[in-house]
Write a protein that binds this DNA or RNA. Structure first.
Lengths: 190, 190
DNA sequence: GTCTATAAAACGATAGAC
DNA sequence: GTCTATCGTTTTATAGAC
């Protein structure tokens, strides 16, 4: 087993569960099955290890997003598929979790990967919506950047509300509401 | 100055900024200008003080929501006014912040006030949307619970994305996108 | 009610042996 | 590379004087 790898995956899990503030070096080491010496040999400290873990998580998410929003089918079909993929709702979003952490937000280098995921996802959605506009899939001309920001926000907010209520129900409702409203943009009222 | 009051408002601020995990008794005391003895005289410990602070914050938010969604004007007008009120975007939502905290979610009594705020806000929005449906303000018949969950989620998620990008821009875009889509539900395509 | 003293454990890291 | 020992600080209290 590669201790350095174990430390990174361990930190990834703890950042997801407890955030930067709630993650201690000791907890990382125990979960990784590594000692103090090992951790401080591979990383200069908690911040450096967290950076490696965040970058890894960001890369994993980016790969998933790239695979999902792949420009096949209509804009609505792509976005629907993206929104309906299986998610561990009550666990929340790895990146959204970090956006709430005061230390992540305070340290530019830790916030940057989080920023890039959200900026990149929005741009991807803008591209999809723009192609939908070009193909006249929508009944309206709209600011695609606004719709993209709204879609990402529904997803992030639905995780938040689900955790608050300790239930997947509000998440599913928010997705249904979003898919309904997006649907009305493509077909006229009855 | 009432030390007990100072301790509660101090804990409210720290919960907002740093969450339960990131808030230490010492920090609460310093911000409140109170000593150890004072805090432990008024509260049995960190959890008890946090509960008082969360309940206070929840009550304040509930009062604000009640004042804002007050059944005057059309459903769209009420929701628009609610969404457009001034917000300290980069500070985020007090309650949404707590929903991400592992210790808040783990302790039923700490999560409950957070749950109630979100459940209550959704119910309020459902009532507003139902009255809009009854008055035939919309072009569509839809599941008002789904739309309510979506609206609350956009708001919560927009805070998250704004913090991730350290910018109010995505928040404003999400609001614009939401108001546009809600608008299309009330008037036909051109 | 508030103060100061005390304390066991955890935090975040360093040092040096192996 | 990993281990153990050590370190100063912070955490989350408790105890008892005032």
């Amino acid at each position: 087993m590669d201790a350095k790898e174990n430390l990174i995956t361990s930190a990834q899990a703890l950042l997801w569960e407890r955030g930067y503030v709630g993650m201690s070096p000791k907890a990382i080491q125990q979960r990784a099955g590594a000692g103090q010496g090992s951790m401080y040999h591979h990383f200069s400290g908690k911040a450096a290890l967290a950076l490696a873990a965040i970058q890894r998580s960001a890369a994993e998410m980016q790969a998933q997003i790239d695979a999902e929003l792949n420009f096949q089918g209509t804009a609505l079909a792509q976005i629907t598929a993206f929104l309906q993929r299986e998610r561990d709702v009550l666990r929340g979003c790895r990146m959204g979790r970090l956006a709430q952490d005061p230390e992540i937000i305070a340290l530019e280098e830790l916030r940057q990967p989080v920023d890039e995921i959200f900026s990149g996802l929005q741009q991807r959605l803008i591209d999809v919506l723009d192609s939908g506009q070009a193909n006249h899939e929508f009944l309206y001309v709209f600011e695609t950047a606004d719709l993209a920001a709204m879609i990402v926000s529904v997803l992030q907010g639905a995780y938040v509300v689900a955790r608050a209520e300790n239930s997947e129900v509000p998440f599913k409702r928010a997705m249904s509401g979003l898919l309904f409203t997006l649907g009305t943009l493509t077909k006229p009222a009855i």
